[in-house]
């Protein structure tokens, strides 16, 4: 088919798209398992993580890990489990081999012995940078919560 072989402006190729999907699966599972340090290592050393709630973003791996550890402790105290589902991923090339990645995220919250609910709906905007090993790290993340927009 002609359309399958032509250069597709604006699209990131399939191999990269699949790698990034796997990166997010791994990253979100680290967070949902409460592995704060490994989670923080999916950001660059100087990574920035901002949300609609915090006036000041977390800067650097130590601050990002501390935020995750705090959230994990709160969930444990509340007796709930969160699962972050990312989807509707859209990638655009950025400078220096990086990627602008925009995705939707749902957080499914399940209380012990109870039924899951859709807890949050968000848009996640990342600047991803390539690593030497062919993987990706988040240099900058902004999470926009739909209930606060």
């Amino acid at each position: 088919m002609a359309a399958s072989t032509e250069t597709s402006v604006g699209f990131v190729d399939a191999a990269v798209h699949h790698r990034v999907q796997q990166f997010y699966a791994e990253q979100m599972q680290l967070l949902d398992r409460g592995e704060a340090e490994p989670w923080a290592r999916t950001f660059t050393e100087d990574g920035v993580f901002g949300t609609s709630v915090d006036p000041e973003p977390a800067r650097g791996r130590a601050a990002i890990a501390a935020g995750a550890a705090e959230a994990t402790a709160r969930l444990a105290a509340d007796g709930v489990v969160h699962r972050h589902w990312l989807g509707m991923l859209h990638l655009r090339p950025a400078a220096d081999g990086g990627l602008h990645a925009r995705s939707y995220a749902l957080v499914i919250r399940t209380p012990k012995g109870g039924e899951p609910v859709v807890w949050r709906s968000c848009v996640c905007e990342d600047l991803l940078v390539p690593t030497d090993g062919g993987g990706w790290l988040v240099r900058e993340r902004h999470v926009h919560r739909d209930d606060l927009s």
Partner: peptide, 13 residues
């Protein structure tokens, strides 16, 4: 094929 399928996924996003 993969290439087009991925384009469509990105198109819908």
């Amino acid at each position: 094929e993969n290439a087009t399928y991925t384009q469509l996924q990105q198109f819908y996003a």
